[in-house]
Amino acid sequence: MALIELSAIERVFTLGDSEVHALHALDLTVEAGEYVAIMGPSGSGKSTLLNLLGLLDRPNAGTYRLEGRDVTTLSAEEQARVRRERIGFVFQSFHLVPRLTAAENVALPMMLAGIAPAERAQRVAKALADYGLADRAGHRPDQLSGGQRQRVAIARATIMRPAMLLADEPTGNLDRATGEDVMALLEGLNAGGVTLVVVTHDPVLGGRARRRVMMEDGSKAEDTGDR
């Protein structure tokens, strides 16, 4: 059973009279543990695809099976639960809550899941130590460097031990060296078994993935993993 199975996905945005087919007749299968880079020109539908995979958006047509279950028909409440337990997001602009410390930001998903404070503290401390942020636990995002911020965001995305990590241009706001570190971190997580889907413009970063999906006008133009 594949982790992700998209078939005949359509995503149409209506802007006044005109319709934008952000995704069109898209099929995609991703096995558990895969490392996929989604690439392609601007406006080709990469982010739209990632939002769909993350259940932040619904397709206009087609089906999305996640771990064998059709998730397009789930209620908003059930989708939120799936996001909480199975999916981790990493954003280009980090999306840390500015008034919360690094530790509190990392604890956020566990707080939403209703995990007891004692267990939260323990898991946060371990995660921060794992990502080399132990001495930054009490810092607010504006007291952290870009690379540290993204590491906090990754710690937050993985704290619930999700099945897949979705990253939209995770290095877009970082310099090359820091970006490489972050990618290495994500790849390490992938090596530990987490399915990793990364959207990137950067052919060098994309080249590190075992599988590359090239998008064009809302469809796959090329997929190195196609069998």
Partner: peptide, 16 residues
């Protein structure tokens, strides 16, 4: 707004 979007991405249902 950004924070609300984030909370939703982290799996907060509307009622939360």
């Amino acid at each position: 707004t950004g924070e609300i979007g984030l909370m939703k991405a982290l799996g907060a249902p509307g009622h939360t």
